[in-house]
């Protein structure tokens, strides 16, 4: 599968991140939340991998581990740096990470909290340039102005403060900042979910355009399936810390092979009164990652559960070209997608 024409940029292998649960005065360890539980995937250069799931499924934790805003408990995160070296991000110290930081950038969810309110747009967007050695103010001004133009903002806004901008404009500023250091990998964590409907499309279009123009690689984290479908080349679906299905956007939406993926698609209310949706809603609630059920994590909610699902944990396995699924019964089920 990895023998595709484009080389991979990031390869995540068996990533785990667990948070201890401590109780009482002595902070005794009473358990752990396995937020990310053995996640593996690759991102190829120039593609967008969508990471989708409901809250608490570990998608944001995965993203933060890759950014090394958190240190993973175990696993490897191999990154092909600009100079061709392959480094394991999970092993690097703070100091070793610093030269790599410009190559991996992030777009935030909250357009209000992600910009420093005390600094002008110029200082906000110019910050990554400044800390990475562009000391000349004149050069920085030119670069920031160019970045603002690139993201569809007027360069004369340079000396305004974030409070003067709307949510959509701030998100553009955040994108400009993420692109300032010409990153090889951009991690976008729910970049449009806090925006108004009429502004979401603008930002999605901007991301698509920027990707073609600058040949960017995106890891796109979102809970909204329609947004993920719109922007991704491939999609990984997460449930209780694990990837349950990973395939090309086309394949996963046309023929989902995991019952959870199919249920997730059915649950999205269609913006069309003649297409009733959500009639066969999934019963029950997302499993507790501190105390997941035995066997397949999804079996208590799955309409196709058999004995093997209750006892044996399924592995993520290939089924068809580049289509990975974590389900015992993937071959026998005939699930309908959304296309």
């Amino acid at each position: 599968m990895s023998e595709t024409a484009t080389p991979w940029l990031l390869e995540v292998r068996h990533l785990r991140k667990s948070f201890p649960i401590r109780r009482g005065f002595s902070r005794r360890l009473v358990g752990e939340v396995r937020a990310v539980d053995d996640v593996s995937f690759t991102i190829r250069e120039g593609e967008t991998l969508g990471l989708v799931g409901e809250s608490g499924c570990g998608k944001t934790t995965t993203a933060r581990c890759i950014l090394r805003a958190m240190t993973p408990t175990s696993g490897e995160m191999l990154f092909r740096a600009a100079d061709g070296r392959i480094v394991d991000l999970s092993l690097l110290s703070r100091a070793e990470l610093r030269p790599l930081r410009p190559q991996i950038q992030m777009i935030f969810q909250d357009p209000f909290g992600s910009l420093n309110p005390r600094m002008t747009i110029f200082d906000n967007v110019g910050e990554p340039l400044l800390v990475n050695g562009l000391r000349n103010r004149r050069a920085r001004l030119e670069r920031v102005a160019a970045l603002l133009e690139l993201t569809g903002l007027r360069a004369e806004y340079l000396h305004r403060f974030p409070h003067a901008f709307s949510g959509g404009q701030r998100q553009r500023i955040g994108i400009a900042r993420a692109l300032a250091t010409e990153p090889r990998l951009v991690v976008a964590d729910e970049p449009v979910s806090a925006l108004d409907v009429s502004v979401q499309a603008q930002v999605l279009n901007l991301l698509l355009e920027l990707q073609t123009r600058l040949s960017l690689t995106f890891l796109f984290v979102a809970h909204d399936l329609s947004v993920v479908k719109h922007i991704s080349d491939r999609v990984a679906v997460m449930y209780v810390g694990q990837i349950v299905e990973l395939a090309t956007t086309e394949a996963i939406f046309r023929h989902p092979r995991h019952p959870y993926t199919a249920a997730l698609m059915r649950a999205v209310p269609a913006p069309d009164p003649h297409t009733p949706s959500g009639d066969a809603a999934l019963a029950g609630e997302v499993a507790n990652p501190a105390n997941p059920p035995p066997g397949c994590y999804f079996h208590p909610r799955c309409p196709f559960t058999t004995e093997v699902c209750r006892t044996e944990r399924p592995f993520l396995r290939a089924i068809g070209a580049g289509h990975l699924v974590r389900c015992h019964r993937a071959e026998e089920l005939a699930l309908t997608g959304a296309c």
């Binding site: 950014l67 805003a69 990470l97 610093r98 030269p99 930081r101 410009p102 991996i104 950038q105 992030m106 935030f108 969810q109 909250d110 909290g113 992600s114 910009l115 420093n116 309110p117 906000n124 910050e127 990554p128 800390v131 990475n132 955040g174 900042r177 250091t181």
Partner: peptide, 21 residues
């Protein structure tokens, strides 16, 4: 705060994050 994480991801030093942000 996200903007502090952003500064961290930009590669800013601890000192700069504290003093500037």
């Amino acid at each position: 705060e996200d903007f502090v994480l952003a500064a961290e991801l930009a590669g800013a030093s601890r000192r700069r994050i504290i003093v500037r942000h």
